[in-house]
Amino acid sequence: MFEARLLKSSILKKVLEAIKDLLTQATFDCDDNGIQLQAMDNSHVALVSLLLRADGFDKYRCDRNVTMGMNLGSMTKILKCAGDKDTVTMKAQDNADTVTFVFESPNQEKVSDYEMKLMNLDLEHLGIPETEYSCTIRMPSAEFARMCRDLSQFGESIVISCTKEGVKFSTSGDIGSANIKLAQTASIDKEDEAVIIEMDEPVTLTFACQYLNYFTKATSLSPQVQLSMSADVPLVVEYRIPDIGHIRYYLAPKIEE
């Protein structure tokens, strides 16, 4: 028996919003520790890694490991039926071929349940190697989303260059070029609003705007985003979801021809 209850359905709605541009279907792996999802997009350019810890749920029970292959389009349709203030409970029997979503309004006057067929997805499980990163940049997630959106108007790629002076986001295209430089916040009063740069070695890498914009769909999950970069390895864009887990996106850099 698997049962996971969240007081706020909005977290699950936002998680789905944050992955549905990259993935059409995905496997939710549930065990004692919580729910994990890990999948590459069709073109093998980006990987999504989601963790929702058991202790972040209002109620969590998982007697046996459960693997649920879900069509994310169908899941989105179902979650649209939940009010933002509704609680959501996901339920599945052991070895079941369906999952049930139960939505309850705050006053319990409206209770709805939606049963969805599971898919048998034969997806490979991937191991993410432990990596020491040369640069990590933390900044307000809204600021990162704004930069990606602004720079996307000019070109298809963004060059991220991190040096001890700060971090620079650049792009160029038919109409011209654009650069945004961010320096580390001088005095940190509010951690959520700070830009914090840790650099062991300078790194410059080029990434596709389109993917960075997909990642920023996670903005509402977290006030801050962390970018981790090293030469010749995928960029990690991490949003920590308060009290429950994280969503991490890995993105292969563009390479010089």
Partner: peptide, 14 residues
């Protein structure tokens, strides 16, 4: 010019 890299090779299939 640049070309889009792939993730294959970075992650190990378990």
């Amino acid at each position: 010019g640049t070309t889009q890299g792939r993730l294959d090779g970075f992650f190990k299939v378990l």
